[in-house]
Design a protein around this nucleic acid. Structure first.
Lengths: 347, 347
DNA sequence: TTGTATGCGTTATCAC
DNA sequence: GTGATAACGCATACAA
């Protein structure tokens, strides 16, 4: 009856009048088991509500059906989309997902990565916090070299050159967005970029620079604001930008949280996006969408990224010789109105 | 070297010139190990970068340091906070967290709960989808009875009467909110309630009814709208409510997603919350907050709920005789403006 | 204080 | 086709 009955393979074997080896064969669907024997064993397993022990299987098999997912911020919706994509693919292949939150702390991340070693995970998916921390790159490479595949998601890291990656096409997405702003007639275009050391931040800035350059607009450093990935910092950046003698007439925000901070500053100061200023953000924000706030964004499907990442991991888990792979998920510019403006106070 | 060196306890024992038992004692900090021996063993472990196998430990110990967290919707921000609270407490106690998303599908939930049995999890935290599915209640009770504690979070379920629970004080929170609307002078107050079978929905409706009754306002069923927990449905509910010959002058929304749907309807139809209509939602929505949309809400700290839930689980895991416990997390009415109105078109 | 031997529940390698 | 039996890596009762 139910779970309480902790039957093991030995007990099933005894009851079915066969050996444990045979039971194991039935469990794992070996083809050379006599049909009658198979049925008899299956019947006993059913009757006793037998569930094999994954722990024992893992120990014997020297590999578990668990993957570790390490993310830097469990408050950011982007990562939930990512996790959703990951779990979606994982569950279909009967893999389970361990979640770890580093809170953008490289030290904590290192400890987590060490702790993960105890459990024999089949693979690791990580958006790293310690992108410049040599220990992070080293330990991840060690995993990879010892047969535990690793896929970097969203961020490159130093020392992780041998690892698989799933990234968004940040440069292109950014380029496209800024081009749109230029098309709207802007010249004083600012970017709120974020934490410099992160590769997506860097790449988005590159796209911004290329868009300006290719369109013959001089890049002015005062319009490039760095901060971290959080809304508060972005709010401050926006404040600084608007206090310039020639404030920008358009703003490109480097991620979802930063869009929110900037947006807040605008609202509080009666600067209406889509009218008084043009604005495009990176990463869609579902909630704004639902309430009908028309923020134009560069959307990258985080769910898609999660799926892709898990698929890459699976490929490596099933074929140890699988070659290194890099996937780039395309972005998509969604214009909802905030990229517009009434008049541009240029010059 | 690093990870590649898969040393085991036996190898360490050999190298340190002791038995495996002694090494095990050192690992687990037994006090009756001679200091010199301990040091020698530790040195060898260090040098060989030895990491004990959690799998083997779990098999021997017959219990793992992994807890399963089962939630119905990874897109709902409420669960982000919950998961964050859970992981925060879990990691301090060196527990790891397996995440499962049921997508509000009872069938899928049942399969997940069966799959979890394979792994020897130390406990289960669940916001159930199958609240009326007898299998859910049964399998969870079986877990509990066989020594794997279970804590229900946010939702009661049929057949789960023996389980620990962490709930918000939905009735009181709801009551308080509706009282505030009444204080604002409203009589035609609607509630967008959600999926009837869920206990929080039911309890919030109870609070709504009590508030009206105690204030001598007749309850009119046409002002009670049921749907599911999603924004789309809520949008439709709002539409229906506003098409009544005497539409409500105030609306209370049963959860965060539903607040968004209702809000959207209002915006689209130029009904401004806080001016043309009064509105209070259940569950805070951080994003709205950041962008400065002043939605008044009944806030319950989901992070707090997560922490409490994990703490309860730990108590049971450490003391098999711990008594059943029920925790109710208080709610807090946060007024930001949307509860106000300009004029009430009563009568 | 330390060592020996056995068990935990599987899988895998041999034989038969 | 099937059955013994040795791993897998660790914990622990019992001896010493």
């Amino acid at each position: 009856m139910g779970i309480a009955a902790k039957t093991n393979i030995k007990e099933i074997a005894r009851l079915a009048g066969v050996s444990v080896a045979t039971v194991s064969r039935v469990i794992n669907n070996f083809d050379y088991v006599k049909p009658e024997t198979r049925e008899r064993v299956q019947k006993v397993m059913q009757e006793h509500n037998y569930i094999p022990s994954a722990t024992a299987r893992d120990l014997s098999f020297q590999r578990s059906e668990v993957v570790a997912v390490v993310v830097p911020d469990l408050k950011n919706p982007f990562f939930y989309g990512l996790i959703e994509g990951i779990t979606r693919v994982a569950e279909k292949q009967h893999y389970q997902v361990l979640i770890f939150n580093t809170n953008e702390d490289a030290e904590k991340e290192y400890n987590i990565l060490r702790a993960i070693r105890e459990r024999n995970v089949a693979g690791i998916l990580i958006t790293a916090a310690g992108v410049r921390d040599e220990r992070t790159g080293r330990i991840l490479s060690e995993y990879q070299n010892s047969g535990t595949p690793v896929v970097l998601v969203d961020r490159f890291i130093e020392g992780g050159e041998s690892l698989d990656t799933v990234m968004a096409d940040n440069e292109a997405g950014s380029y496209e967005a800024v081009c749109e702003l230029i098309r709207q007639g802007h010249e004083r275009i600012a970017i709120i970029a974020g934490e410099k050391s992160l590769s997506p931040v860097y790449e988005r800035e590159l796209g911004y620079r290329r868009a300006l350059t290719e369109n013959g607009i001089r890049i002015r450093e005062m319009y490039i604001a760095y901060g971290n990935q959080m809304a508060d910092q972005s709010y401050k950046c926006m404040k600084r930008l608007m206090s310039l003698s020639k404030p920008p007439t358009a703003v490109f925000c480097g991620n979802n949280m930063m869009s929110l901070g900037a947006y807040r500053y605008m609202i509080e100061h009666d600067i209406r996006p889509g009218e008084d200023i043009s604005m495009i953000g990176f990463d869609d924000i579902n909630v704004l969408n639902i309430v009908g706030i028309p923020l134009s964004v560069v959307d990258r499907s985080e769910k898609e990224m999660g799926k892709k990442a898990m698929e890459m991991l699976l490929r490596h888990m099933k074929d140890a010789d699988a070659k290194q792979d890099h996937v780039s998920v395309p972005t998509r510019l969604i214009l909802r109105g905030s990229e517009k403006h009434r008049t541009i106070h240029s010059r």
